[in-house]
Amino acid sequence: MVDSLAKMVGSLQKDVDKSSRYAFQSDYALFIDQLFYASSASHITYTSLLATKLGIDLSLNRLVCLLYIKDREGMPLADSRLLYALIRTIRTRMTNKNQDIVGLLGTSRIVYCPYAETDFFSREKLENQLQALAATLANTYPVIVSVSVGLYAQHVLEYGQSLRSIPAVVQQNTSNKSGSIIFAEDHLVDYLLQIIPKSVLDHFLGYAVHYLQENPVVYETLQALVCNDMDIYSTATQLQVHRNTVIFRINQIKEVLSLNPLHQDSDRFKVILIYTYARTHLNKEI
């Protein structure tokens, strides 16, 4: 049995070596690489074995946080020595040094996965910790640090999924201000639009998006409704129109799209989905 396991590990090592993006990696660096980019059952098995060897329990709740590192001029940091110095500093501030995960993930990106001792994170506490960490890095080194927080991960496959939830939220983060934090959970619609095939979106949302293209005033009203959490008075104030005008336009949406976003939660979600798809995925002026 031991011989069989040894042969399996050897086979997996060869398989991983062929696909690894970096040669001669340490076990920990290789673990980071495989954890987020495992693409086959053998890679997943090898990642689990590496985690066991490193004493990392992959069944624990973690959040995947990406730290985007730029120099003071706003350009992606390319100095590998400085990036590893940043990682060493992060390690000294980790609350659960044996179970928190941190490493370099491609150019100018550091991944940090804090472990939750309970079944959930306190968002306020986590945000304060990340802001303090970003401030420490920015004050210690000549860098600008922004942080994006992905979804929960409690399984090997979920780390890659959480990582893929982050690009959608990064699009919302246009500021280079050091210490800025943005959460994927605040932009779940953007994430859904990333993972659902465009052909499926066009099939179910195409008619509604076409209607918005042909009726820019309705689109403007929908945009204001979404931004103001479907509040009629705030929407009317933003659009500088009477509330009855907003109600009239909402009735148009009800009639044409058969959606009632003010009184049906499911319709409200559909309206937000339609608006977000029209805004971010058609790449057209509406």
Rank of each mutant, 00 (worst) to 15 (best):
E124D: 15
K125T: 14
K125F: 12
L126P: 01
L126V: 05
E127P: 08
E127F: 10
E127C: 11
E127N: 15
N128S: 15
Q129P: 10
L130C: 06
Q131T: 11
Q131H: 11
A132R: 12
L133Q: 02
A134L: 05
A135P: 05
A135Y: 07
T136F: 05
T136S: 09
A138C: 08
A138F: 06
A138R: 07
T140H: 05
Y141E: 02
Y141A: 03
P142G: 04
P142I: 05
V143L: 03
V143H: 02
V143G: 01
V143T: 04
I144N: 14
I144W: 10
V145G: 02
S146K: 10
S146F: 06
S146Y: 06
S146V: 11
S146R: 12
V147N: 00
S148D: 06
V149S: 01
V149G: 03
V149I: 08
G150E: 03
G150I: 00
L151W: 06
L151T: 09
Y152N: 14
Y152P: 09
Y152K: 12
A153C: 04
A153N: 03
H155E: 15
H155Q: 15
V156P: 08
L157R: 14
L157D: 14
E158Q: 15
E158N: 13
Y159K: 06
Y159D: 01
Y159L: 05
S162V: 05
S162K: 02
L163C: 06
L163Q: 05
R164T: 13
S165F: 04
S165L: 06
I166N: 02
P167G: 08
V169Q: 07
V169C: 09
V169Y: 03
V169G: 01
V170K: 15
Q171E: 13
Q171H: 14
Q172C: 11
Q172W: 08
N173I: 10
T174I: 13
S175G: 07
S175Q: 07
K177S: 14
K177G: 11
K177F: 12
S178C: 03
S178H: 01
G179L: 00
S180T: 14
I181R: 03
I181S: 00
I182A: 06
I182H: 04
F183V: 08
F183I: 08
A184E: 02
A184C: 09
A184K: 04
E185Y: 10
D186V: 07
D186P: 05
D186Y: 06
H187Y: 11
H187L: 07
L188D: 05
V189P: 02
V189Q: 06
D190Y: 09
D190C: 10
Y191N: 09
L192D: 09
L193H: 03
L193Y: 00
L193D: 05
